[in-house]
Structure formats: structure tokens, C-alpha cells
Amino acid sequence: MPDTPAWPSPARRFSPPARYCAANHFRHFTRGRYALGEAFRLAGIGRQGALLAPAYHCVTMLDPALALDAEIHLYPLQADLSPDPMALERLLGTIQRPVKALLATHYFGIAQDFSHLKAWCVDHGIALIEDCSHVLLTEHFRAAGTGIHGHFVTSSPYKFFACDDGGLLYAADAQRLDPVATTPATLIEELRGLKNAVERSRGRTLPSRDSASIDERLELLSATKLDWGNDQLIDRDGPSSLFSIASATTSSLRSSRFVVDHSSIDENIQRRRENYQRWVRTVAAVPNCRALFPLLPADCTPYMFPLHIDHPNPHFHWLKHLGVPIWRWDEMADSTCEISCDHRLHLLHLPCHQALTEGQMDWMTAALEKTLRHAVEGVQ
């Protein structure tokens, strides 16, 4: 079996292709975070083995390592969110405990070239764990340039399909996964998953408001003293509430795998790219922001649209109060990476998933444009 076998072309609706290689190269989990935790464990992460992780991260990327009581070192990133090789080398020289693994992430569905990073890891005897949680990667399909460098590869198929759960662990060397054992979901969990999958397939709802109501609410919000909350970094010595030890070895639902296998990849890619490009066109003429990746690669399936805003206080909070479904990673661990420190509060994640309707995109783009054009006190 070759080290980097080629995945087949995109799946068609109701006709899933054969796996690109044998099923023993995969293990299924309820979430990508648990697949990641198993990859950490297999790589030797724990009290005796340290992890190198990207400074820009969500809590669930570090939770599995914290659950293993591991020492974590955050490496700096460059402007395109690729690892800074010189900073990485300097950081490695300061670590006393053996470094067993490096976590590298393809952010927002845009593939990074990790070929040099893999060579660096091999030279230093470090396992490369390729995080494809923002990438369209299943047993039958992978986005170009992803899933080919890591000794272990993890993904979160449920983020791209209307299913209730789904995390995937892959290894080109199937023997690496021999120690992995998962527990199947119960019948009750399967039935609950089917119910949730049906509800998800009906689409997601957003507030039904016209442009006039956005203007009215922005005027009210700008005249109201809002609580910005606590933007301070939080030190943690254990996993967050999003990580469940009880769920760490549970296999994903059979219904979820059925949905992934029988959904149209072509339609998924097309709709996500259209919505992403819609965001790019919208923000091109809007002040106080910039698209982090305005040029979408031809072979890319975006997960979210990353938007850098100039004034998170108040614009982020106004958007949240309006009901725009946006996210940011403001609970990151502390680091010296300037890019990550900036993105923690300034980088928004906007939805571009395939289930969004034209009306929902119209409302969200209008809300974003009106909010970012709205005057901020003390700013000319």
C-alpha cells in the first residue's frame, strides 16, 4: 500500500465510490477532537511527551492533549497561517521534555503545503499530525493537497454534511491504528442521530428581518452601553467542558456515515464556493475590514469565511446582538505569536455552508455591511 494513496474523484449522490484504500486505515469517532486525542496518544503525547501546537487554535484542538496531561508548546504562525519555520526551530531548542508530535492545521478549508514541515518532523523524530478539521476529507474524498503529509490525519466530516456527528482518524500505515478500539453507539443514540439528521437536512434558520430593522437595531445598540465581556486569556490545566472523556472512544453513528457517503460532494463544493465568493464581493467595498483570503484556490472547498475587522469592540458584539452567526477563537492559550494575538479578537469566522439560502445570505451580508459602516465612537 503506498504511503500517500490517491483519493477518487468527488462522490455522486446515492452512489458512494469504493474507499481509496482498505477500511483498516480509518477509525471513526463522534468528533474530530476525539480522533485527534487518539492520534496524540498513539504519537506518545502525555506526561513524558510534549506537543507542538499552532498558536492560533480553538480550545478543542488542545483539549485532547490536556486530557492526556501533556506539556503543550505553541509555535508562531505567519500571516497566511502557515508555521514559521525559523521560530519553530528556535522553540524546539528551548524544550526540555521530548517532543513527540507536531499538530499542523489547514485553516478554513485552504490547504497548506506541509511537505517541508513533514521533512522537518522526520529529521527530528517527531510525528506530524495533520489537522483537516476545516477540510472536506472523508473516506471517499479529500481536498487537494490535504491528508497526504501527516503520520496521522484527523478530520471532522460532520462540519460539511447534514449529519449529527463524525470524526475521522486516518493513517497511511494501517498498522499504526492497530491499538485503536472504539465502542459503537447505542440504539437510542442511533435513533436520536437519525432524528437530528432529518432536522438538519431541513436547513438552518436565521432571524427574519429586513434591512430597515437592521438599521433600527444598530441605532439602539450604538446608544446602549454593552458589556464586552471578559476578553482576558484563560489559563487551563485540563480540558474544557467541550471534551468528554466518556465520549472519547465512541464510534460515530452509522446514520452519520450514511449521510456522508450518500451526499453530493459536487453540490457541497459548488455552494460553499459560491457563498464564500459572495462574502468576498460584499466586503471588498466595506470599510473597517479585510478578507483574510480574498483569492479562493480553484480546488478549495471552504469551511468558513475568515474576515479581519478593525474594531471588534463594538462591531463583533453588535453583530452578535443582531443575530449574525459568527464565531472567533477568543479562548486561545497565551502565546508570543503576534498573528494569533491579533486574530484572537479581530478575526471573525462567517458561515458559507451549502445549506444557506439566498435570503439568508442577503440578510447576513446586509447586516455585516451596515454594522461595519456604522460609526464607532472616537474613530474618524
Rank of each mutant, 00 (worst) to 15 (best):
L368S: 00
D164H: 12
S222G: 15
A79R: 11
P207C: 03
P287C: 08
F305S: 12
L322K: 08
A53R: 06
P306W: 09
Q354L: 06
T105H: 15
Q78E: 15
R344M: 09
L187M: 10
M304G: 10
D261M: 02
I326V: 13
A53I: 06
R192V: 04
P297Y: 10
A111C: 06
M61I: 00
V135M: 15
E38S: 03
L307I: 10
F316G: 03
G147Q: 02
F108G: 10
H308F: 13
L52V: 07
I188N: 09
V376Y: 13
S247W: 02
E89S: 11
L242D: 13
H315E: 11
G167V: 02
A172D: 09
A6N: 09
C58E: 14
T146E: 07
T183R: 10
K320R: 12
Q232K: 12
H124P: 02
V259D: 04
A101G: 10
S82D: 09
C341F: 01
G125L: 11
R13P: 00
D227C: 04
D334Q: 11
L128F: 06
A119I: 07
K225D: 07
A355S: 15
G125V: 12
S82Q: 11
H346I: 04
R142S: 12
D3T: 05
F141K: 01
P297I: 07
T154N: 02
G359K: 10
G150T: 04
R209K: 11
G145T: 08
M361D: 06
C341Q: 15
L168W: 01
D69M: 03
D342W: 04
A18R: 02
W120V: 03
A23S: 14
D231N: 08
L177E: 01
F29D: 00
L253C: 04
V286E: 09
S222Q: 14
Y107S: 05
A50P: 08
Y276K: 06
L368R: 00
M1F: 06
R27L: 00
L177D: 02
A111N: 05
R373A: 08
E358L: 13
H149I: 02
D362S: 12
F29N: 00
S263W: 09
C121S: 07
A248F: 01
E190K: 06
W327R: 12
L36A: 07
F141T: 00
L92D: 03
L177G: 04
N313F: 05
A22N: 04
E130C: 09
R202A: 14
L77C: 08
T60F: 12
L226V: 07
R19M: 12
I148K: 02
P306Y: 09
T146N: 06
I188L: 15
H28P: 00
H317G: 02
H311F: 15
Y170A: 00
